[in-house]
Design a protein around this nucleic acid. Structure first.
Lengths: 239, 239
DNA sequence: GTTATAAGGTCAACAGCGTTGGCATAAGCC
DNA sequence: GGCTTATGCCAACGCTGTTGACCTTATAAC
């Protein structure tokens, strides 16, 4: 267990490091994002982050309980950026679609960070703001509360799950990614039609399709499902 | 890079370890699964695995290029178990649904392993067998190849993405999980209705809902989407 | 101003990690 | 029965997260 972490808003004595840097939670998180981008998801270490900030590694433990806690803070930062890049229009379907894609692309903008954080619920303020927003859209569209909650969970889990999955691919090292992409040519495309008729028949389409995320496809089917529920629930709802 | 890994089928000289254990790829993978279950996803280390097998840690590098390669082998084992537990009925919708749930639950049966592997495409034989099966069901149902490929990707990515997400929750230590669940009571349920009206209004439903996976909900909407596509194609409507 | 408090910085050390190179040995081919 | 080499073991390297002890200085109280 860490000694004691003073919450950001209660910090008063901002003593600079030996090298003159004045630390703060957001400064550390930003530096961590930069390091993740430059050195990959395994490149974020306490020592390196300390060095980049001009501070001793152990200083980080004054701000976060451990590397895991730091990861959750990074996730919240990404969630906040998604919400900031989004604006409501009042059309529930367009708003949900845009918000889902915003979350997805906010995480994919920092794939190495997303790999670390996308599958963790942080419970931090910006994540809560996103939850409130989604629920508001669904209830505002006219869904009864049980359905709103059901689709809220499906929506946010879908966005996070695909963010993690797609980020995993992007976060691979250049070398590992080309090796993965070559696998389609060297392994899948060469399977004989006798043993794997369906892969052989669609190899060309598969290779082209695998370059894109499946998230938009699945998101749209989820939105279709919500629309169907709305049509069934509210008699006389225009389409 | 590791020295040279002899593929399993080319191994001839099965020399026992000092403690009498005769190693093999599957023996190592099984032991790794056991360790993951017992010690959590951070508990799988080369040294511990070596000790559990009665072998030197470095011996593992005769079988796998590194811990990452071992993780991919573990993923393939889980995929194989999913396929083994599944039987075809000829009804595309029932078959896809059962297969998706089989993959999901095969990974969730070893959440600590799933966290490590679910977001990696292994390209190993059993994973390829699953791919071939899914494509066969979709094309057999009558989908034209482009749609079959589109839904194949959506289907497998959805299964893997939710496996990873849900496994992440299950894989938390007992302590961390109860802390996460308490967060609903201590954080979400106490948000004032003035600042977070939608969360406040549905707090009860949310707490109940969050105990289940959203995967079945999303899977069913995807199957609905496939059915709609089939109906459109069957009616002579082309995309 | 002066002084007391403790926040917030540094430093050194720990145990454990993945991984490698060198070496020993025995399994199986000729 | 000897030779080759796959496969085991050992020792070591540089790295990691984390902690406890210590120092220093910004702020609050007087």
């Amino acid at each position: 267990m860490a000694k004691r972490v003073v919450p950001e808003e209660a910090r008063r004595r901002r003593r600079p490091t030996r090298q003159g840097v004045v630390l703060s939670e957001t400064l550390i998180v930003r530096a961590a994002l930069r390091m993740l981008r430059e050195h990959g998801s395994a490149g974020l270490t306490a020592r390196r982050l300390g060095a980049a900030l001009g501070a001793d590694p152990s200083t980080l433990y004054r701000y976060f309980a451990g590397m895991d806690d730091l990861a959750r803070a990074i996730g919240d930062e990404l969630m906040g950026r998604a919400l900031d890049s989004w604006t409501a229009t009042g059309d529930w379907r367009a708003d949900l679609r845009a918000l889902g894609l915003a979350i997805h692309s906010s995480y994919l903008a920092h794939p190495q960070a997303a790999v670390l954080t996308a599958s963790r619920v942080s419970g931090r303020p910006r994540e809560i703001a996103v939850d409130e927003t989604i629920l508001g859209i669904l209830r505002g569209a006219g869904l009864p509360d049980p359905a709103a909650v059901r689709f809220y969970q499906a929506f946010i889990d879908l966005a996070l799950a695909f963010a993690a999955l797609d980020a995993g691919e992007l976060a691979l090292s250049e070398e590992a990614r080309t090796r993965d992409e070559e696998m389609w040519d060297t392994t899948y495309a060469r399977l004989p039609a006798t043993s794997h008729p369906n892969i052989a028949a669609t190899a060309r389409l598969l290779a082209a399709r695998m370059l894109h995320s499946a998230y938009p496809v699945v998101l749209d089917t989820l939105l279709d499902g919500i629309a169907a529920e709305l049509a069934a629930a509210g008699a006389g709802v225009t389409q």
